[in-house]
Write a protein that binds this DNA or RNA. Sequence first.
DNA 1: CAAACCAATCTGGTTAACCAATTTGGTCAA
DNA 2: TTGACCAAATTGGTTAACCAGATTGGTTTG
Lengths: 235, 235
Amino acid sequence: MKVEVLTNNEKRDVQQKIIAKLRDLIEYKNLEPGDKLPSERMLSEKFGVSRSNIRESIQKLEFYGILYSKPQSGTFIADIGRVAMSGMMEDILGLEEPDFKSLVETRILLELKTVRLAALRRTDEDLEAMRSALDAYKSKVLNKEDAVEEDLLFHLAIAKASKNSSMNTFMLIITPEIITNFEKYHVCDSNQSFKGIQEHEDIFQAIKDQDPKRAKEMMKVHFKVLYQYCYHSDN
Amino acid sequence: MKVEVLTNNEKRDVQQKIIAKLRDLIEYKNLEPGDKLPSERMLSEKFGVSRSNIRESIQKLEFYGILYSKPQSGTFIADIGRVAMSGMMEDILGLEEPDFKSLVETRILLELKTVRLAALRRTDEDLEAMRSALDAYKSKVLNKEDAVEEDLLFHLAIAKASKNSSMNTFMLIITPEIITNFEKYHVCDSNQSFKGIQEHEDIFQAIKDQDPKRAKEMMKVHFKVLYQYCYHSDN
DNA sequence: CAAACCAATCTGGTTAACCAATTTGGTCAA
DNA sequence: TTGACCAAATTGGTTAACCAGATTGGTTTG
């Protein structure tokens, strides 16, 4: 068979088409939760694509909790009904890459919450981790070196201390893109970093004192420059 | 070579070990952003695992934005520094499956924001989509049928109208687990559903009127029963 | 007649072979 | 000396072959 090399975009297109076809198939065959999908081989033949493509698409839908695979058995519809599944697939197909504004908006939302939770739930170990991340950040800034990474690690330490696994994961997901865009748009200049030290210290102290209200307030101050990128009204 | 079939847990273990080894390798070789990783073949030999395992681990790290692959060229360290990368890998290794409380906490956080944004940014098309989702929900409830899916689709329509791709994606990610747990713990009983109709109508009306404050307030009312699962103080 | 058993078949997962684009090191001409 | 050029080796991506566990339908046995 002819082997083709696809660009990332073409690959995404193929996957979207397969997902759409799977949705149509499920609709057409009236497959319900627990029902078995046709085998990967059969699907690859039916859709005229390679089995790898089918497998990747199935894995994506597994990630979103719509399907699940049992080894040596088959791939099944998850325990959500047909209506929800069809709607979710539609949404997944309509998803687009997040723009910078979305990222910042989401980051602010997440961090104003994680910092409160961290103040409520932090252990002594969490405190130590934050302290050392903060110290690393300080020494970099005082040496006038770039400290974007250390900045970020401090914020991730807070997310970890929030004891909320979902938010922690989501923070990890958006973080690299935030960094990339920060560097691209030069969001952080050096005198900003000096101010950042005191702001970080304030946040740390509030978490240490287990004062969620102040922790959130300090985080808000820290994010003030970001608000210009994302007009944001207080809740 | 001997072929082994692994359980999902064992598979996750293998991946974690590979990621840990990759972190050690990057540390040891002092690889910096833009540097090339050894080839997949070499890594698979070095770590004593199959190339597929290596590929999956690399793809996971690509998902988190730590690595990127160029076809016919190699896999490279992304444009985040060594410190950040090492810290992020540590966090990824430490991630655990989110519990129900985390999910609910995150859902409430996300939805109180998406509903505000939807009120500010919704188009007429968004409004139509929400309307039809809401009607589907109503007719199910009035027929005394289970309407968890339709409920959910209404909320996803709101997320879509928020025009924030990140939050939309995150809502999609947590939704199936929320459903599963709802059904497991019987969070929604039937008389709850009747009350839900009016609450949904209120939310819809507020979004239609482009009144973000009321939209958020109505959503809060809607989530009142959820608060018992997740002691949640107002911000 | 029902339950236990068994072998053929089907399945997702795994490994190996293959492909074409990209690098790369060296060669040759200007 | 330098720049263009080319062929061989390397690479991630793709396809095909293979594996062992699960399913299934028929057969046998109590």
